[in-house]
């Protein structure tokens, strides 16, 4: 029997495929112009609304738990940037439960590439870039006002901590989306997780110890902005967890991926 061995598909293969799918996706998005503009407008509006909420709070209360306006702003900008990748690259998770339920999901299982990659690669959400720009502006403004030095080290640190911080929200949404393999109509899990992200922009020190534990180790929203921000905001007292956050983030993302794939393996595909 002629037995072909599986072709090797490494990182460079996946990168080039992603680039190609992305380019095609952008091309086809342009054909839905009205949606593109309304979505971008919606994204800008969401950010403005979030900002207004923020301003209204601090209009009444000048500091929270020892965090003054600019520190809060730094945290706010940090969280917006860290929440961009989940919006831009992992948006297809929102469609997962519909595809699983209708049976359409099965098409992702017939290709000789990673199912998670194939599924996630299919949607790139351009409007997330608006949030990125908004967040970056806030972040730089607060950075300058707090007076954090601009050196190769701090900038590199910022890049690393922002990227790894983004993994936490991605992982949370992976977990939430993958619940649909076990639970019918699990959309609310995603909605709830997505709502939790609102609290990424507040300092976790406001919680009591029980909830700080929950938001550090169970639903690690505190890692999206609070812990990594401490590296910049209070450089003299950085807790160990802040330094560890890149590793924890990578691990957490990996676990969420494993969970997602377990769902694919365990699912009955009785939809059709």
């Amino acid at each position: 029997m002629e037995m072909k061995t599986a072709k090797k598909r490494g990182l460079s293969f996946y990168l080039s495929i992603y680039k190609k799918i992305l380019a095609q996706d952008l091309k086809s998005k342009m054909s839905y112009r009205a949606d593109f503009f309304i979505s971008t407008f919606g994204m800008v509006l969401t950010n403005i609304s979030g900002f207004i909420t923020f301003i209204i709070l601090f209009h009444n209360f000048p500091s929270v738990n020892g965090w003054d306006y600019h520190h809060m702003l730094f945290l706010y900008g940090f969280s917006l940037i860290a929440l961009t990748p989940v919006q831009c690259f992992f948006d297809n998770n929102w469609n997962l439960r519909f595809m699983v339920r209708s049976g359409d999901f099965i098409k992702y299982c017939f290709r000789p590439i990673n199912v998670f990659f194939y599924f996630i690669s299919e949607v790139f959400d351009v409007k997330g870039l608006g949030q990125f720009v908004f967040g970056l502006g806030t972040f730089i403004y607060a950075w300058a006002h707090i007076g954090i030095p601009v050196t190769v080290v701090t900038v590199a640190e910022a890049a690393i901590f922002l990227i790894t911080a983004s993994l936490f929200m991605i992982a949370l949404m992976n977990f939430a989306a993958a619940t649909c393999f076990w639970i019918i109509n699990s959309g609310y899990v995603m909605v709830i997780m997505f709502r939790f992200k609102d609290f990424a922009k507040y300092p976790s020190s406001i919680f009591n110890s029980v909830f700080r534990f929950i938001f550090t180790f169970l639903i690690p929203i505190a890692f999206v902005a609070y812990y990594p921000s401490l590296v910049f905001v209070t450089p003299d007292h950085v807790p160990l967890l802040s330094w560890l956050s890149p590793f924890i983030g990578s691990l957490f993302f990996f676990l969420s991926y494993k969970f997602w794939m377990l769902g694919v393996r365990k699912y009955d595909f009785t939809g059709s």
């Binding site: 799918i21 095609q24 996706d25 086809s28 998005k29 054909s31 049976g103 359409d104 099965i106 098409k107 017939f110 299919e122 059709s272």
Partner: peptide
């Protein structure tokens, strides 16, 4: 598989 297209819709 069935009537479900596996091609990229757009």
């Amino acid at each position: 598989f069935g009537q479900r297209s596996q091609l990229w819709w757009n």
